[in-house]
Design a binder for these strands. Structure first.
Lengths: 330, 330
DNA sequence: CCGGAAATTGGCAGCGCTGCCAATTTTTCT
DNA sequence: AGAAAAATTGGCAGCGCTGCCAATTTCCGG
């Protein structure tokens, strides 16, 4: 039975009858050593149940294999998708992801950034371009590779990987206008905290205004985005502004709520009411009428960010674009 | 402008005109120091843009505030929910989550466990009770607090938090039998890799057999679970065994695929065909006919595990149960 | 079989911080 | 005021590992 792993490099070295540096070289497969030595060291390490201490290794070599990721939420599949792309690419390169969830709270984000920086990560990924001034200062001064994800509308600190949310809003509005919808309402979640949703609706309204139109109504749920919130939001809008053409939801989750509310109430989609979402979630594709939405390259954004984080890339902005999915609901 | 954070404790000490240990005490708010000293140290730290190096701190104090979490997948919302519960509770206690995703590959899980252990985490959470022998040995010998999540059907190493998947299967079968369904098929994803899904179907069949029945058909998609896989699976089953009463899906995602296939094909639910899922996802509750399924306490499992990880709890098994949601599809 | 090049190997000084202990200063009590 | 107790403070030895450099061994060509 192995004892609670307390064996150190020195123990292995003693057991194998070689020096510490030799053990270090063998275990990292770095530098030169003879085949015979290698076997002896490996045998000793196995026998002692040696587990290297990466804390010590990192301190000694000044350079961790940790990548910090600060995301706003885990409540829907969007950020897990980003994480998935990132963690897969990171693992392939021998890096590990340390994650923190800010719950869309800027002050918490700042604290988490400071906290992550204390681990001297090889890189730090954060969602979006908006941060508290102190957080921006920390990031900029850290000397760490910084990657800002999912947004390109604004100045970035180091590397930004994503797409333009404002342009997503514009494209969505153009689509609805092209299909002939004129009396359009918006149902969204808290814009003060989700700055990317705010940028989308800003782009959306920009196009509307350019066409001499305006949102007929606008319902903002002060809670996190959810299917239930979408349902409740649409309910309230319908009570206030019954003569609507179309509803633009802040994301697919909210739109699903609206979709099923219509289904339950016998409101025909898109005849009586058109529905448009954002994200391009899988379930939207198998609805009897596929959801009209905008598909975003979430996994790819995570993967690209991970690649840039581990390469020695220059500061840059990578636009991975988005795809408008016409669907059948708008 | 702050220079790329290279300031060390010693720099702050020199700038403040005090000793290193004093700075350390002030910054950790631990031990005693005068108010005047405190201010001087804090001012110096701010002026230098000092960011503590937790790598060094952890090495010196032998005890990290890191908790490793190894999960099989981020492809649907299930494990993100667990992560959410865990990360929230962990952060509240000043711990940070390091995550790794094994993609349901036992060999990768083993490598990741070894990798996490190298960070000397305060605790390590893994999904399920099945691991490679080497992984089990590593976990057991690590001397680290181990938490196995989402499964109680089998021996655990240290702490297990979850519910019985086998009992979920039994309860699901009882429900279907009580509603009069007799010709039941199963549509699931790869059972060889998802051992918890395998335990559910085993429990399900156990009850069927006890009632003198057996699964009429059984379709296993050799890929990851997904809505599309559920749809394709049901399609194939219907082609083979048209006279079915009900279909038991390995999870809600798969069930949604089936649900919408029926909707599209005009198959009435549950009149022509009953559908039963597993997980209790939010979207199932807003379908025109709410999905019949089993709701699992995912967030709570994560939170409970985090609490036990940070307390000095004894080895134990915590059954958080599950809830059968009758719904309207079975 | 010898000298020099190449391959191996060990020693040891840190990496930046914390914990322990002793030294110093301040406060309290008689 | 003097002694004892309490509060502050600094010094310094590690934590376990890596990087550098020098020492030792092995390998080759002539």
């Amino acid at each position: 039975m192995l004892r609670p792993s307390t064996a150190t490099l020195a123990d292995v070295a003693a057991a194998a009858g070689v020096g510490e540096s030799t053990v270090s070289r063998v275990l990292r497969n770095h530098g030169s050593f003879s085949q015979k030595t290698r076997e002896r060291v490996l045998a000793a390490a196995t026998r002692l149940g040696y587990v290297p201490n990466r804390i010590a290794g990192t301190l000694a070599s000044a350079g961790s294999r940790l990548v910090g990721i600060v995301i706003p939420s885990l409540a829907n599949i969007v950020f897990p998708d980003v994480l998935r792309g990132a963690s897969q690419a990171l693992e392939a390169e021998g890096y590990q992801a340390v994650i923190a969830v800010s719950e869309y709270d800027m002050a918490r984000e700042e604290a988490m950034i400071a906290s992550m920086l204390a681990w001297r990560p090889a890189a730090l990924m954060v969602a979006g371009l908006e941060h508290t001034p102190a957080a921006r200062a920390l990031l900029a001064a850290s000397g760490t590779r910084i990657l800002e994800l999912m947004d390109l509308d604004g100045p970035s600190i180091d590397i930004a990987v994503g797409f333009s949310n404002r342009e997503v809003g514009r494209a969505s509005a153009r689509h609805l206008l092209a299909r002939g919808y004129r009396r359009i309402a918006y149902v969204g979640h808290d814009l003060a905290v989700d700055t990317r949703a705010a940028k989308r609706i800003a782009g959306f309204e920009e196009v509307l205004h350019a066409a001499g139109l305006a949102l007929v109504d606008r319902e903002t749920i002060p809670t996190a985005s959810s299917i239930e919130a979408g349902q409740a939001g649409l309910e309230r809008v319908l009570a206030r502004a019954p003569r609507l053409d179309a509803v633009y939801f802040s994301n697919d989750d909210m739109a699903f709520g609206g979709y099923f509310l219509c289904m339950t109430r016998g409101i025909s989609i898109p005849g009586d009411l058109a529905i448009f979402g954002y994200n391009g979630l899988a379930i939207g594709r198998v609805l009897p009428q596929p959801l009209s939405t905008v598909r975003t390259p979430r996994v790819e954004i995570g993967a690209t960010a991970a690649r840039l984080a581990t390469e020695n890339a220059p500061a840059q902005r990578v636009d991975l674009g988005f795809e408008l999915v016409p669907g059948g609901t708008a």
